[in-house]
Simulated scan of single mutants.
Amino acid sequence: MQNIVILAGHVGATPEARTTQGGTKITHFSLATSRPKRDSDGKVIKDRDGYRVEDTEWHRITCFNGVGKTVEDYVTKGMKVMVRGRIHYTSWTDQDDIKRYGTEIIADEVTFLTRAKAASGDQGGNDSSVDDDEIPF
């Protein structure tokens, strides 16, 4: 069985990156996905102005190493991206000894659906899709 997730949405904030003591690059960002809200008959609900009402969900995306570096360098708030990865569930005990739970998407690939920002010193020719297996080391 496979744990595969594909999400397409808007980046909620500038990605945050850090490097572990072991040298692993970890980059986090939030991704908003939306779908139309429906009534009990399955019809799309519209507001007074005739626009459809949407439900928005926020997802925490985590990228490692090459994918994380590329996301850090090129992704900005508001960009449309597609993420392919897997769901990861975590649990921990906080400082007040309360059990906490979290869910994140571990990204194997991030595809830019809108133009990426230019990195400093970039000479062009950017690939719009980054796969962890394709990153030169």
Results as ranks from 00 to 15, higher is better:
54 E>G: 05
114 T>N: 02
25 K>S: 05
95 Q>I: 06
29 F>P: 05
81 V>G: 09
1 M>A: 06
135 I>K: 03
120 S>I: 11
84 R>G: 09
35 R>M: 09
47 D>M: 05
118 A>E: 15
134 E>L: 11
33 T>H: 08
26 I>A: 03
81 V>A: 05
88 H>T: 10
68 G>V: 13
98 I>P: 00
116 A>Y: 04
121 G>L: 12
128 S>N: 13
104 E>A: 04
106 I>V: 15
59 H>L: 02
14 T>R: 04
43 K>Y: 08
24 T>H: 07
39 D>G: 08
121 G>C: 11
38 R>T: 12
78 G>C: 06
42 G>Y: 07
45 I>R: 02
105 I>C: 10
107 A>G: 09
33 T>A: 04
62 T>C: 13
128 S>E: 11
6 I>P: 00
92 W>Y: 14
55 D>R: 05
26 I>R: 01
2 Q>I: 06
123 Q>W: 09
29 F>T: 02
113 L>T: 03
53 V>Q: 14
5 V>L: 14
56 T>A: 07
31 L>A: 04
43 K>E: 15
134 E>S: 14
86 R>P: 10
22 G>T: 15
69 K>S: 15
13 A>V: 01
102 G>R: 09
112 F>K: 01
102 G>E: 11
130 V>P: 00
129 S>N: 12
133 D>G: 06
91 S>W: 02
49 D>L: 08
54 E>D: 15
81 V>D: 08
82 M>P: 00
57 E>V: 06
110 V>L: 12
30 S>F: 03
